[in-house]
Amino acid sequence: MTAFELAVQDPAGVAVASRVRPDRIELCTALSTGGVTPSAALIDAAVETEVPVHVLVRPREGGFVYDAAERAVIVADVADAVRRGASGVVVGGLARGAVDADLVRRAIDAADGREVTFHRAFDTLPDRVGGLADLVDLGVDRVLTSGGASRAVEALDELSALASQSGGRVQIMAGAGVTSENVGEIAATGVAAVHASAKRVVRDELLVSLGSGAQAGVSGYATTDEPEAQAIRDALASGAAL
């Protein structure tokens, strides 16, 4: 069966994951920016669910070319996540238009035998075929990708080609816009796993502006939608996604 990774970003999402029981949790915060490293307390709460927790380690929003100070923070956060009981980490970085091999090696060392996923920095590579070969050689366990598209369902042929190229040497996990309605055709590409956030928006109101991305007025924030997360899991479990 195609594995299901549920991306969660808050305590409510952790609680949903504890009930839905996906194959693993990708834990982060600020999913609207692609996700950044979660707090220590949120990691602890997720680990307590006993669902395998893979912590996203990304020091800031924006692109994936990091300076020396940012690389040091990434490696330290990987080690901290492992100490807190994470089953894996999710990292990525680019250098000179290719995979940042030095950063990946350092992250693998800091992960101390736990699984390492290379995140959607992969989708920004000009040469994904070569990038996948590099990641196989580096020894990562998994690559999260949309096939280079905004939504995985728009790149089914590319996902199928990547799954074929991987040859079982690394897992290909499809993510971006995965829903209970399209998970079947995405899983049918032969990917090892799907990654979904199953989000819903909670309406909220800010009385004052808190920043450029949080203006005063009626607004909202995203959290995990339990029925949608359960529907994705059920679709995969029933064989509808095979």
Rank of each mutant, 00 (worst) to 15 (best):
G93R: 01
G93F: 13
L94Q: 12
A95F: 14
R96S: 15
G97R: 01
G97I: 09
G97D: 11
V99R: 00
V99D: 07
D100F: 13
D102C: 00
D102T: 13
D102M: 03
L103Q: 04
V104T: 12
R106T: 06
A107V: 06
D109A: 15
D109W: 05
D109R: 09
R114L: 03
R114Q: 13
E115L: 14
F118N: 02
F118R: 00
F118A: 01
F118I: 03
H119A: 06
H119Q: 05
H119W: 10
R120V: 08
A121K: 04
F122S: 06
T124A: 14
L125H: 08
P126W: 10
P126A: 06
D127N: 12
R128H: 11
V129R: 11
G130M: 09
G130V: 10
G130I: 07
G131P: 11
A133L: 08
D134M: 11
D134I: 03
L138D: 08
V140D: 02
D141N: 14
R142T: 09
V143F: 03
V143W: 01
L144G: 03
L144T: 04
T145A: 09
S146R: 01
G147A: 07
A149G: 09
S150V: 13
S150F: 13
R151K: 14
E154V: 02
E154K: 00
D157C: 01
D157Y: 08
L159I: 06
L159W: 08
S160G: 15
A161W: 13
A161F: 09
A161E: 15
L162W: 12
L162A: 12
Q165H: 14
S166R: 08
G167N: 10
G168K: 03
R169D: 14
V170S: 03
Q171I: 02
M173P: 02
M173R: 00
M173E: 03
A174L: 10
G175S: 05
G175D: 05
A176F: 05
G177D: 10
S180L: 01
S180A: 15
E181C: 00
V183E: 05
G184P: 04
A188I: 02
T189Y: 11
A192S: 15
A198V: 03
A198W: 10
V202A: 04
V202I: 15
V202R: 09
V202T: 14
D204L: 09
L206H: 15
V208S: 12
S209Y: 07
S209I: 04
S209P: 05
L210P: 00
G211P: 09
G211Q: 07
G213Q: 12
A214M: 14
A216Y: 12
A216I: 04
